[in-house]
Write a protein that binds this DNA or RNA. Structure first.
Lengths: 207, 207
DNA sequence: GGCGCGAGTAGACAGTGTCTACTCGATCTT
DNA sequence: AAGATCGAGTAGACACTGTCTACTCGCGCC
């Protein structure tokens, strides 16, 4: 492991070329040979760093998860600690920012968002990638706990509410990218739906 | 259009072969040539019925949408009429059946569910396919209106709530198929999360 | 200073989607 | 009823893909 550099080396250049190509042309353009071409090497070179095409795609997706984490401000592991004791109103504001950030990422980088959740492509390396999404889920859980203190005993646990909220955000992003949402709700955009989602899982904003 | 038969003819046999292959091996196995092989014809034959590989995949996905509609009991257009005047409790029970049916379909036919929402593959024929999901959305909207009569003026409209609920179900199905959900919520399965989702969008079950 | 070896090259191979030339059988016209 | 027409399927070619294997080259090491 003499090469722990993340910006030099063919491995990083291949990932960078893939990210660029993905943004420009979409998932279908992420050919092994085309990525190698863009990186300026022959088509056999990637094999030294990625055993298979799927592994290279998984590395690109991993890069995407990192970008999503920074876009959401979850870079350092401070999400849990900073949210431990938090005013409900502030926690809810953070949750709304998180939600809007997630949806914005999916809208601005549709190719990357699509690749990140293509489990058929990432099957082998899926376990490692799935773990990458856990920090987001942890931050969600703690913020939910701050907004909805689990007073009622029979009410859902913060983790359950966080899962419900996360799946809602994900489905919202996905169906918006797919184009079904606009067809169903008219062209208002997702504003009202996002408000309904947040209100449903966290309770009305003003009390 | 001498051939309006849906069960004979090469076109239907190709779709059937694709459906079978999709269930057996997954989306990646849906090669044009392999589908043709399974249908017992040469690799050029599908071109007479589908201009491109993507069109054949779109036809297979359309078949999947039809199967989903029948599995959800939305075959005839009676969803809207039957739900016009409905007890809230009965409407809610129907919504729960609808939700469980959607999730069951995604779980039992993961390959088909994945193909149905692969907008990169279905791009050209996407508009027609998107319209196929409207009956489901209509049924959802009317059932939601029966459960939550829009008494409050500033509350969300039934269509908005239906969109929020639908995206939640979809994201739930998708992330469960992806494997992230079990990782986040433990191995309890989706029971508690589904209950939280329904309660969040429709209000608690017992009043 | 010769050696080994990691890294990249070049070519082969099977498989894919698309396109074109062709065949063949049924249908329709006169 | 004989011959032309045309839809439907076949066979082959082409460029492209992912993977595998042999090969080369340059740098570090004892």
């Amino acid at each position: 492991m003499t090469e722990q550099d993340n910006t030099t080396g063919l491995r990083a250049r291949l990932v960078a070329a893939g990210v660029e190509l993905l943004a420009l042309e979409g998932v279908h353009a992420l050919t092994l040979r085309e990525i190698a071409r863009r990186a300026g090497v022959s088509h056999g070179a990637p094999r030294r760093h990625f055993a298979t095409h799927a592994e290279l795609l998984a590395a690109i997706a991993r890069h995407g998860f990192g970008e999503l984490a920074t876009a959401l401000g979850l870079q350092g592991g401070d999400g849990r600690a900073a949210a431990a004791h938090l005013e409900p109103a502030e926690a809810r504001a953070r949750l709304e920012r998180l939600a809007r950030g997630y949806l914005a990422f999916a809208a601005e980088q549709p190719g990357m968002f699509e690749l990140m959740f293509r489990h058929d492509v990432l099957e082998g390396s899926g376990a490692g990638l799935r773990r990458t999404s856990l920090p987001l889920f942890d931050a969600l859980t703690h913020l939910v706990a701050a907004v909805r203190p689990p007073t009622d005993e029979d009410s859902a646990s913060p983790a359950t509410v966080a899962a419900a909220l996360w799946t809602n955000l994900h489905g919202l992003a996905q169906l918006r990218a797919w184009g079904s949402l606009g067809l169903a709700t008219g062209s208002d955009g997702l504003g009202p739906v996002l408000r309904a989602v947040l209100d449903a899982h966290l309770g009305p904003a003003l009390r």
